[in-house]
Design a protein around this nucleic acid. Sequence first.
DNA 1: TAGATTGTTAATCGATTAACAATC
DNA 2: TAGATTGTTAATCGATTAACAATC
Lengths: 223, 223
Amino acid sequence: MAGKSRVSDAVVRRLPMYYRHLRELEKAGVVRISSQELGERMNLTASQIRQDINCFGGFGQQGYGYHVSNLKERIAEILGLRHQYHVIIVGAGNIGRAVANYAGFPKEGFNVQAMFDVSPALVGIDVHGILVQPMEKLQTWLDTHNVDIAVLAVPKSVAQEITDQLVAGGVRAIWNFAPVDLALPEGVAVNNVHLSDSLHILSYRMNEKELCEALDAGKQLGE
Amino acid sequence: MAGKSRVSDAVVRRLPMYYRHLRELEKAGVVRISSQELGERMNLTASQIRQDINCFGGFGQQGYGYHVSNLKERIAEILGLRHQYHVIIVGAGNIGRAVANYAGFPKEGFNVQAMFDVSPALVGIDVHGILVQPMEKLQTWLDTHNVDIAVLAVPKSVAQEITDQLVAGGVRAIWNFAPVDLALPEGVAVNNVHLSDSLHILSYRMNEKELCEALDAGKQLGE
DNA sequence: TAGATTGTTAATCGATTAACAATC
DNA sequence: TAGATTGTTAATCGATTAACAATC
């Protein structure tokens, strides 16, 4: 009945997808939905949906299905979207600025409070109402503020070093845009947005058919 | 010996990671590496690494291991990074511009040739040497150019509609930054960068411990 | 040659799917 | 009540790990 104390990665990755679809459904005025219907919409089996949801408790009702708004709210809670977070952005390059400008951010409790960069060209500029501070000010900020989430949008060469500083400064989670796999102590959360990895996967997929045909025909890669 | 005609998703997702680590190793002057050592670096088992690589052919040598540069090159080929691609960016907002500005792009064969946006405020500006064109010009461009990859960085409300236009116009792959799951015909590749999903997963993870403890203690979500 | 390490087959583990009793 | 659909257990499928013969 209650949640298993460990939820598998596969399930966690689907949670935001449930949230997205349920929000759409709610906006479209749909009041109830069965696992069957939701599955058709999301390209999942009804069985999988019921299994996933039951990791966190029985939010449905036999013979009826799920109440859309209620299920949406439960998943928002599960995702931690009913808290407020203090966010800082380290690195005010293209990515850092794009994140700062993302409008949907504060509505879900993610409040950007400061930005930092090494480049004198960027220090002092205003990004969506946030003043970019020099990197030397980061330590002082960490010493004097509770930071929940740090957005890491710096070159890979300094990513680990800054991460260590952030962790020592009490940051609880790192949203990492640097193309490295960070080493982190237990208890600090991380999620990666590896843009070039994503592009490489796309590139693989668009060439997959020919590649597999070539391999099946006995072709060796390389010369 | 030759590759299975179908490579699992799990393997494909690891390919860019192999590529990243091998590039690092090559840069660090490492000539050969065993699956054992590579596994320690990447937090994978040696067994898994050998299985993964052998989907595409036997690139190693018994008693020796893998030749770093050679394996890196084979994986680059597998990922399709030894081709040149024509890329357009649809949507010149924060994300579109960040992608356009990404410096590593052309080096790997991804050549951005045009950008489009609906906003008069953005049309005409120069982004990293590319002039932003009005959205009405998109159709003409598709009619007169071969586009391999389209970067989709538009609001979700128009994402599917533009996708259909791109597909009809012969685009082979879509790098999707809109927070929707696009419907696509067989033969067109897609890969999603769902930023808010990624942030939600981070948010889940930073709260997971308390959540699971609460659930184990019998707490119900909601009121 | 002996030692090392791959390529590959077999065993295990975990995630997905199917089935069905419980129940609204 | 009868019908529908969940919650949950059992069966299946696929991915990871272990083991080892092949071979450099």
